[in-house]
Design a protein around this nucleic acid. Structure first.
Lengths: 203, 203
DNA sequence: TAAGATAGTAATTAATTACTAACTTTATGT
DNA sequence: ACATAAAGTTAGTAATTAATTACTATCTTA
């Protein structure tokens, strides 16, 4: 419960609603989060929510936007500090896992949306987010190949899919196990394996 | 619509209900599948469903049982035909992907359950299913290590997690893209990468 | 300080949902 | 044939939920 008590300007309240959803989605399935629950979390009445969003779906679009923006920033910062492309991949991997560890609701949103029919607007937004992410991984892999840091005949597309999949698969398993605090340790053990899959310096 | 028209003995009808859920889950989120929708799919009325299952949750437990049984059979068959452990892993990988391609509702169930609170009975069942699966992968990896087919200092646990994660991550991405028919081609491109992550001498 | 805009409330609505129970129909064994 | 138990129907109920509406309180600013 935040119980902000005071009235907030529309923009600030919208952000509050997004954060309420993120907080609630850390423990519950996104679909199970009712507008009533969102209102309770802020200490407001249910009707107040619809002062700031026309429909429930509009809330979810705003949440996806928030995730996209923050994840994108984290990625950019991680890559910027990198030495070579392979180091960039490692930093990206760690940043991605760290982001999920602090925002467990983010993967929940994704896993939730991939269930729904194709024309769903929220799903489209999530798909676009993931596409952009994979493209950035591909670029790093291409540079790594150009600098002869990985197997010269590496299947870049597959390697990018595996990169994203490694994180996603790990998250699936830790979410199912219920112990999200083991995410980062497990990720550290996975990285050497992924790195070796790229080939390169080894015979 | 199956429209079986005739009356069915309880046991057969229960199986019909499970198959109806599997069929409906291929396109919709499991949570969105109502008892009414199940009944419609069989050409019966909603009340008929509750002749065979006391609660909605009981239906989902039966569905998980079905998946567990069929996946387990497919795995066992795949491993049985294998030559060496690494060949077993490859066959297991292919069998797993093939199972998902023919039963896309299976991963949907998993992704749906991992969202819910820990005490959920269906989630517990799904978790047990995945644990057994990962253990079988671990055994194959251990044998591969004993036969010196992979890196002698391989982190088995991590490699098993990566194995399962590779499939799961791939499924997440194809489900999100909406083109499930690209699953198997993409999987074939991923296998060489996973194999290389295990290290060892390449033939 | 008065006027208008903005944020939130309280009550209600229409639709959907899992579940129940009293009933009718069908299949089957003797 | 026919009794009867099982399978399916009909017609509900109670609870939940997103959305709406008429109203009130608070802030801004001219």
């Amino acid at each position: 419960m935040t119980l902000s008590k005071t009235r907030l300007p529309a923009e600030a309240r919208q952000l509050e609603i997004v954060r309420a959803v993120l907080a609630l989605a850390a423990e519950n399935s996104p679909d199970a989060i009712t507008t009533q629950a969102i209102a309770n979390h802020m200490g407001l009445t249910q009707g107040a929510v619809f002062r700031h969003f026309p429909t429930r779906e509009a809330i979810w679009l705003a949440v996806v936007d928030w995730v996209e923006q923050n994840l994108s920033d984290a990625i950019t910062a991680a890559i910027a500090e990198a030495g070579d492309p392979v180091d960039g991949l490692r930093r990206l991997f760690e940043a991605h896992v760290a982001f999920i560890a602090t925002h467990p609701s983010a993967p929940r949103l994704i896993f939730n949306e991939l269930q729904k029919p194709a024309d769903n607007p929220v799903k489209q937004r999530v798909r676009a987010l993931l596409d952009r992410y994979r493209r950035r991984v591909s670029e790093l892999l291409a540079r790594a190949k150009a600098e002869a840091l990985v197997e010269p005949e590496l299947d870049e597309t597959a390697a990018a899919t595996l990169f994203v999949g490694t994180v996603q698969g790990l998250v699936v398993q830790t979410l199912l196990a219920g112990d999200l605090h083991t995410l980062q340790p497990a990720a550290r053990r996975l990285w050497p394996l992924y790195l070796r899959s790229l080939g390169g310096c080894q015979p």
